[in-house]
Nucleic acid binder design. Structure first.
Lengths: 208, 208
DNA sequence: GTCTATATCCGGATAGAC
DNA sequence: GTCTATCCGGATATAGAC
């Protein structure tokens, strides 16, 4: 959890914590679809039934709202990734990870889009986080995957690209949900997506 | 090429066409990183060495600039997809498609991000295009893939998800280039990415 | 803690001289 | 075709009453 993105304020009253939670939840949706500059305080306010000025009583400014929401998003984002364990069977470990990520993506697609948006802008707030904390974590998991490959439990694929592939596909169903639904004529559920991704990543499309 | 997104103006002088091209190129970059509302006419203008008012001589308003850029983007986007032929060998056809998409993504990452942005907003301008033209096209290619499966040339995967998988991965390297580079500590080239995706999609990570 | 009113700024767009 | 000047709406943020 990158402290660098947003400072946690000290000592909040009960209503303060409650209202800040209301605000960040509404803000997540607005920032995710409208982008940083496209989002307006007024839209966030009306979405959580609050007046603009009242909202600004709980947060000093727009930027602080954004930083808080982003920090919260990153927090939950890495948890399933961290849990990939070297001791587990690779197919099971990766399968679990994919399943959890898909569930998360369908459950909170706005979080996924918010993150995507930050990256599109060139990651002004989290560039440092990506190069340090995230890189270290990925290096660590890449080593695990390499170990699996060396012991013959996995085909010799590049660990980094394997990880990117999982991120890319799981996120796609959140970020491009509109397109997926338009093209398929329906919205695929968690199970269907998980099956599709797991099958493809692990087995591929080449005939047995 | 969706006519619905932007009308082509008739009869443009030589300088008009040239300057409009300058503008749309600059606009592509700004819209791609800042989003629709985040982009300002002034930024677009300064990026192509023009004054704000002068720019507005060539385009009536901001919206028209956006529509034009978006239409241009969609135009090039589908070409490689259309060329997937039922007569070709599946591995070759898909491999070629992936290679072309990756090359395109690395060559024009802004186009990819612009499209992603439009989808994130809920596809206000191209929702109709997605449900009609794009859906028809995907249905058609899905049938081709299904045919390959029926004749045993491909493993029994869901054609739609296979297509999404290819879109997701190829686009990831354009849209999340900042993250990829931060995590890997270097920028992978076209060949490396194409190999990684093709290998994964066709063969998967399970040991032979 | 919540409201009304308002200062301030910025971006889109137009008028009109050259 | 390009410029300067300007209007207008909308968005952030603050002041101050209640």
């Amino acid at each position: 959890m990158p402290r660098s993105v947003a400072e946690k304020p000290e000592k909040l009253s009960r209503i303060q914590t409650a209202n800040r939670a209301l605000i960040t939840e509404a803000a997540l949706e607005v920032f995710a679809t409208e982008g940083y500059r496209g989002a307006t305080i007024e839209r966030i306010a009306e979405r959580c039934g609050m007046s603009k000025t009242n909202l600004l009583y709980y947060f000093p400014n727009k930027d602080e709202i954004y930083r808080t929401v982003l920090a919260q998003t990153l927090e939950g984002w890495l948890d399933p990734f961290i849990e990939i364990s070297p001791d587990a069977d690779p197919e099971e470990a990766l399968g679990n990870y994919i399943a959890e990520k898909v569930a998360l993506s369908l459950d909170r697609p706005e979080a996924s889009r918010l993150f995507a948006n930050e990256i599109h802008r060139g990651a002004p707030l989290i560039h440092d986080f990506l190069k340090t904390e995230l890189k270290d974590l990925v290096d660590e998991k890449a080593a695990v995957i390499r170990q699996w490959i060396d012991s013959g439990k996995l085909a010799p694929v590049d660990p980094y690209h394997l990880i990117f592939m999982i991120w890319a596909t799981t996120q796609h169903y959140a970020d491009f949900a509109v397109q997926v639904e338009a093209v398929m004529g329906r919205a695929p559920d968690t199970d269907e997506i998980t099956q599709a991704i797991t099958g493809m990543i692990l087995k591929g499309a080449r005939p047995a």
